[in-house]
Design a protein around this nucleic acid. Structure first.
Length: 275
DNA sequence: AGTTAAACCTGGTTGC
DNA sequence: TGCAACCAGGTTTAAC
């Protein structure tokens, strides 16, 4: 489910409610991608701090307890967080509960590609190791068109795969990579090195525009995404190409096509996206 | 070193 | 109706 807009929407929905919340209990369900990495009882009594986001990871500081640090969380493909004032018994897909004085934070994730990992700090392992290969945040001022162009130079990998890899710029997943490339008029198969300065600038602007609009609409809810208060996203209804195979392109009237690229569905318009 | 494929896991949809 | 095949918002690890 979650690309940068959905993760940021989630962050905003848990940030204030969990500040100062005291951890009362931790419950683990089925294993997620990685083990929690700490005895759950060691978190009791810690208090929540300001929630941060890095790429598609969330960081919830837990300060003042027996093991100061925080939780690095990832929603994988199908994960979502809910903040519940009165929590029903955990269902078969509820794999992590953080019971606090301000409510119960519950991770629901049917496919279990998500993760909750304790780390003594963002800059210390295991968090530092998991975040080490991440590229710039898309709205970071240090990410300039020139920087993007320089990092694309010489790479033969299709531009869409480079966006998904996240080692240059983080945040775009399958939906927003397709959307940004369409907005920029670039064929998803284009070797990254063939994206010159002008198109790199156009691509960066398109990526920021798409992610920004998705954020303002609460993200995309294809199937099961909710923020921590249960609110769904609305961007999917505005998608120009994603999920629109066979429908007319909103810009040029051509027909939106779908094909599989690097094991992922790619939606694009042959009429207005060029190599 | 760069690129591509396989793996992780479950549930919903599609097609025979 | 039953069941196999395919599809899905991500990332790491292994293999060419």
């Amino acid at each position: 489910m979650p690309e940068l807009p959905e993760v940021e929407v989630t962050r905003r929905s848990i940030d204030e409610p969990l500040r100062g919340a005291t951890v009362r209990d931790v419950r683990l369900g089925k294993p997620l991608r990685w083990p929690l990495g700490i005895e759950p009882g060691a978190l009791h009594g810690a208090r929540g701090g300001a929630a941060l986001r890095r790429g598609k990871y969330l960081w919830l500081p837990l300060v003042g307890g027996a093991a100061p640090g925080g939780l690095l969380m990832h929603l994988g493909m199908s994960g979502s967080l809910a903040l519940l004032s009165r929590a029903p018994p955990p269902g078969p897909h509820d794999h992590f509960d953080l019971d606090t004085s301000h409510g119960l934070l519950r991770l629901t994730d049917p496919r279990r590609f998500g993760a909750v990992v304790w780390s003594p700090g963002l800059a210390q392992p295991p968090a530092s190791r998991l975040l080490a290969a991440l590229g710039h945040e898309p709205f970071d001022a240090a990410l300039t068109p020139e920087f993007l162009r320089e990092r694309l130079r010489g790479r033969r990998t299709p531009i869409k795969a480079v966006l998904l890899a996240g080692d240059i710029v983080v945040g775009a997943g399958n939906i927003y990579a397709c959307e940004a490339l369409h907005a920029a008029g670039i064929d998803p198969r284009t070797p990254a090195g063939r994206v010159g300065p002008v198109r790199a600038a156009r691509l960066l602007a398109a990526l920021r525009d798409v992610l920004g609009r998705a954020l303002s609409l609460g993200g995309s809810t294809l199937r099961d995404f909710r923020d921590a208060h249960g609110v769904i996203g609305a961007y999917q209804a505005q998608a120009a190409v994603y999920g629109r195979e066979g429908l007319p392109c909103v810009r040029c009237g051509g027909t939106v096509r779908r094909f599989v690229q690097a094991q992922r569905a790619t939606y694009w318009c042959p009429g207005c996206q060029r190599r």
